[in-house]
Nucleic acid binder design. Structure first.
Lengths: 346, 346
DNA sequence: CTGAAAGCGCTTACAG
DNA sequence: CTGAAAGCGCTTACAG
């Protein structure tokens, strides 16, 4: 069935041993340059392809990295995680590695089953992309393999993680709103859903504190249920002048909600998002938001997992990747910095 | 360095040979049920994981499928191809397989280099997702491995392919426009860019022919340059009443173009798209379009490649996956079915 | 500079 | 029902 060429075939053809072929093809010492050249030439002619499984079995490395994405995220925000995965695949290539994408089904997450990439030793390390349940984090900890969390973190910080600097990004963009005269600013997001949403909330909160603004319960608007499904956003009776949304997609949803109630962005209220994904440019007007540096996150994740493979004791802790604000047209400068718009200078 | 448990370790612990362990773990005949149970129990206790590389080397199968996406597509329409890839990964899992995503760089495509997944024998088959150059198709043909094309095809049909029924989908949606009274209908797309765009054009063209409408050059509007980068769409002097766009993203671009010139959809002109991707619901009003059945395409591709692995001579030819029209609000019923709007019934 | 030997972890006949 | 032997394709000491 398999008509595959092996090193032995090349060796027979050239009239040397397979050891010499192995050395030549891997540019190891101990083979004359002439012979190396000849062996390589014959290898190409014969259409030789390395059997990576045989190599793997020798040095105990699969040269694959598993990327585990909880399935419940892939519907919601697929473009983001898939774009991250794509970048991971590109960076992995620079190290001679490949990426294996595995969706973690809700069922496996529930049952605390190991992913098949792990139980079949298909990978040398695992990048977990997107928050998993507390219980499943324990399962991951039990995996005897280098692993890192990407785009979320474990509260006990026992596993290295790489995250967007959510806190600082939200802090900065809230500052920006305040500089534009906003004083009554709501935050949109279920802060118990993911650590990202919570951290962004805290950045927003810090900005409020620093500017002497008081946070009230009515300013926290829920955007999704416990299972992550989006719900209709309930606007407070007294409308805020600005909304900090935990992500662009939610900002997009908010736009629709506002529009259906007759509010115009940014004339009636300003809106900012987070991520700078496709939704940010598809709203009208386009969204001022915090751009997440996907390429840098993927690059850092790959570098980190590679370091752990060569040195399993290596710890990098929590690495923050800075985002940057992208200014568009969803924020309006308010003339009056006071809350009473009726006694403004007119 | 590696503290990995092997079958031998289990065998020692239980007091049998590694052959018996292998049989037990694989549920092969020739081991008493009692012993099987005991071996499996010990395996779990010891945290045993199969070494898939060792298995691979035995049966010559890697249990991986390579998915090759030309990099130039990933920027343009990433969400589509990445979503297809995701579905492929899911279906592959049912067969005990994994997917390895490989981006084909413009450089490799130019140089006609084999992808690394091939030259390192990392995969048992290759799914090429997205059109590659004619020259590179030859390179792919030279790969000694089962392979299929997904979402495009080779003109000589020497390699099996799975595509959306572009022709029929475009034909149907154009018929729909005509039923709504449209007679002056433009097609938006560079018909030399990909076979999909061309086939959709031909479906549109067939619909025109069947309804006795004449196609004129001015009705074919270019949307991208030779390298696939979007360009500004040049509207004809005499405005058509409807536009068939080769994809939703281009429809989205067209909306913007129309809007900047003061035209409203669908009041001033109707627009339809293709794909039913994220752009279709983000336009306002949302787009009537042809939904591509991503799940079915991925499922068919995986099934086909699996068949080829077990039987390399298996041929499936060109498989069409039917789409379906999703009706939204971008098409207006025209009162007058004639071309002279001045003598309509009023 | 070149090669015979051993071994990575598993599975497949084959023998008992 | 159980196991000793051989082998998959490669690489790593080691010997010459």
């Amino acid at each position: 069935m398999k008509s595959n060429i092996t090193m032995k075939d090349i060796a027979n053809k050239v009239g040397v041993s397979s050891v010499t072929v192995s050395k030549a093809l891997n540019d190891k010492e101990g083979v004359s340059d002439n012979l190396k050249l000849k062996i390589k030439k014959v290898a190409v002619e014969m259409g030789y392809r390395m059997n990576s499984a045989a190599k793997s079995i020798k040095d105990g490395l699969s040269y694959n990295i598993g990327v585990l994405i909880p399935q419940r995220f892939t519907g919601m925000n697929d473009s983001f995680y898939l774009r991250v995965y794509q970048q991971i695949a590109i960076h992995l290539d620079h190290y001679g590695y490949f990426g294996i994408l595995t969706l973690l089904s809700a069922e496996d997450e529930e049952k605390l089953s190991f992913p098949r990439v792990y139980s079949e030793s298909k990978v040398d390390g695992i990048i977990v992309l997107g928050q998993v349940s507390k219980e499943y984090i324990e399962t991951i900890k039990n995996m005897d393999l280098p692993k890192i969390f990407l785009d979320f973190y474990d509260e006990h910080a026992e596993i290295d993680s790489i995250i967007t600097d959510n806190f600082y990004g939200a802090y900065e963009i809230t500052n920006y709103l305040i500089r534009h005269g906003h004083r009554d600013i709501a935050y949109v997001g279920n802060i118990y859903a993911t650590s990202s949403i919570q951290d962004r909330f805290l950045g927003y909160y810090k900005s409020l504190l620093e500017h002497g603004l008081t946070f009230e319960e009515r300013l926290l608007l829920n955007d999704r249920d416990e299972r992550g499904a989006f719900i209709d956003i309930q606007l407070p009776d007294k409308m805020p002048t600005a909304f900090v949304c935990n992500c662009d997609q939610v900002a997009f949803n908010l736009y629709e909600q506002l529009s259906s109630l007759g509010y115009q962005v940014p004339t009636d209220c300003s809106v900012v998002g987070f991520d700078n994904d496709v939704y940010a440019t598809l709203t009208s007007p386009p969204l001022t938001t915090v751009e997440v540096d996907i390429d840098q996150m993927a690059r850092t994740a790959v570098k980190s997992i590679m370091e752990k493979i060569s040195n399993p004791n290596r710890r990098n802790g929590r690495v923050l990747v800075q985002g940057k604000i992208i200014y568009r047209e969803s924020v309006q400068q308010l003339d009056s910095p006071s809350e009473n718009s009726d006694n403004s200078q007119a």
